[in-house]
């Protein structure tokens, strides 16, 4: 969901205030904004730049460097699927293909109906119960075809 400019200012300001006097406040602020909105709205960048006495370019340079920060709103659900080696060794490739087919999206894409964003992640530390995924912050291990279908039902519900 896109947010209106005023809505962004009123939600971003307290996050900036919470952190601006701490050491190294930029990442905590960006993380806070992404937690609030699911992405980092472009309108937030000048507010951060002003508060931290940085240029907009410096703030944008940091935002664009870190993979986590989305420039656009994600789907209603976010599915992160581990694509790292330990998961690959336990059939992660097959699960990845199956989920992409079932959801009709590729990695980094959001479904046309806005139901889900599929993202690749490189290690959730669940290597001993691979392949693994995280759906809206909930971890899922030993993914197989059946669990993949369960995920699809859940995000479409």
């Amino acid at each position: 969901m896109q947010h209106a400019g005023t809505e962004i200012v009123s939600a971003v300001s307290p996050i900036i205030e919470r952190w601006r006097h701490e050491e190294g406040p930029l990442l905590p602020i960006l993380n806070g904004i992404q937690r609030e909105f699911g992405y980092v709205p472009r309108e937030a960048l000048p507010l951060i730049a002003d508060a931290l006495n940085l240029s907009r370019a410096e703030v944008y340079g940091v935002v664009s460097f870190y993979h986590d920060y989305r420039e656009n709103p994600p789907g209603r659900h976010v599915l992160k699927l581990c694509r790292a080696e330990a998961c690959q060794s336990m059939g992660g490739d097959l699960v990845a293909e199956r989920l992409q087919n079932l959801l009709g999206v590729k990695f980094g894409e959001t479904a046309g109906d806005g139901s889900v964003t599929l993202e690749a992640v490189y290690c959730l530390g669940l290597c001993a119960c691979a392949p693994s995924a995280m759906l809206d912050g909930e971890v899922i291990g030993r993914l197989d075809g059946e669990k993949a279908e369960e995920i699809v039902r859940e995000v479409r519900a």
Partner: peptide, 22 residues
């Protein structure tokens, strides 16, 4: 908390990240 940059596991890149930089 970091923000998904693998290189920040390297100690000096990590320090930059803690300081709020790339």
């Amino acid at each position: 908390v970091g923000a998904g940059a693998y290189v920040c596991g390297e100690e000096t890149a990590l320090l930059d990240s803690l300081e709020g930089k790339r």
